[in-house]
């Protein structure tokens, strides 16, 4: 067990070092996210003009939702993982994992965790710099059960995001070009993950339906827990249960794609 942990610890350290090479890319990306945040502030500020609440929440609560969403994206979102898996398959780099006692999913997951630690830490820098401007709009709910529930929700969100990206990367076994699949999926994930607007602003029937989809648990669910948009304990427990189901289901899909894909894979070269 310790030997297995040591193996992935080494991968984690190498992943950290590789991510630090791209520190400026992450920092620039985080800085550009603040431009998006400015757009969100202006749009929602104008939408709230003349009214104190939209969908049961005031302007500060709504803007807090988007600020928390922005920061968490850098800690738990999949960024280039689908392309990295795709490149490994296209270039034949996965061949080495077929010969070594390394599980490719765990290898990629470990690299993902190290990369998100770096990108998350770097994203905090521009946010901290902008904090004097953001602080008047931040309002977090009082200490409650929500925060405890948010911890497993965040872990499972990261697993869902990574596994979906991993599955899209594995499509390279069947398709030469997967970029269009990824960007098409990104549009769906962006909307149904609550990144464009809080999902609770949707019509009730659509919101209830979205709560059964994996996208709901990618970003919206943990952010809604942390910002107090979801408070009902029974609903939170049910949400954690559905989220766990999606983690297990997606892991199953990933395994299936990996084994089926390997049957199609041809390793060449010495």
């Amino acid at each position: 067990m310790l030997a297995v942990l040591a193996k992935y610890r080494a991968v984690f350290v190498v992943g950290l070092q590789s991510s630090l090479v791209y520190r400026w890319n992450f920092a620039v990306r985080a800085a550009f996210s603040l431009v998006h945040l400015a757009f969100v502030f202006i749009l929602w500020g104008a939408a709230f003009a003349g009214q104190t609440q939209v969908g049961g929440f005031d302007l500060r609560q709504t803007l807090t939702y988007f600020i928390v969403m922005l920061v968490l994206q850098f800690f738990i979102s999949a960024m280039n993982e689908d392309y990295e898996v795709s490149e490994d398959i296209r270039n034949g780099l996965i061949n080495q994992f077929l010969l070594k006692p390394v599980n490719y999913y765990l290898y990629r997951l470990t690299v993902f965790v190290s990369a998100r630690l770096v990108s998350g830490a770097l994203a905090l820098l521009p946010v901290l710099l902008a904090l004097p401007l953001l602080a008047p709009y931040l309002t977090l709910p009082p200490l409650s059960w929500n925060y405890a529930a948010a911890v497993p929700a965040l872990v499972m969100s990261a697993l869902i995001q990574f596994t979906i990206a991993y599955c899209f990367g594995l499509l390279t076994f069947w398709f030469l070009e997967i970029q269009s699949f990824i960007i098409l999926s990104l549009a769906v994930e962006t909307v149904l993950g609550g990144q464009v607007f809080p999902l609770d602003l949707l019509p009730r029937w659509l919101y209830d339906f979205s709560a059964y989809l994996p996208y709901y648990y990618q970003m919206y669910f943990p952010v809604a827990l942390l910002t107090g948009r979801i408070t009902d304990e029974a609903f939170i427990l049910r949400g954690l249960g559905i989220q766990l189901f999606w983690v297990i289901a997606l892991l199953g899909v990933a395994q299936l794609l990996w084994h089926r894909g390997l049957r199609r894979h041809t390793a060449v070269g010495g």
Partner: peptide, 22 residues
């Protein structure tokens, strides 16, 4: 087409809760 739909959906959702933006 999907990304165009995303932009329109945002407008539709915002205007479910307000009559005017600026």
């Amino acid at each position: 087409l999907f990304w165009m739909g995303v932009n329109l959906l945002l407008i539709a959702v915002v205007y479910r809760h307000t009559d005017s933006i600026a």
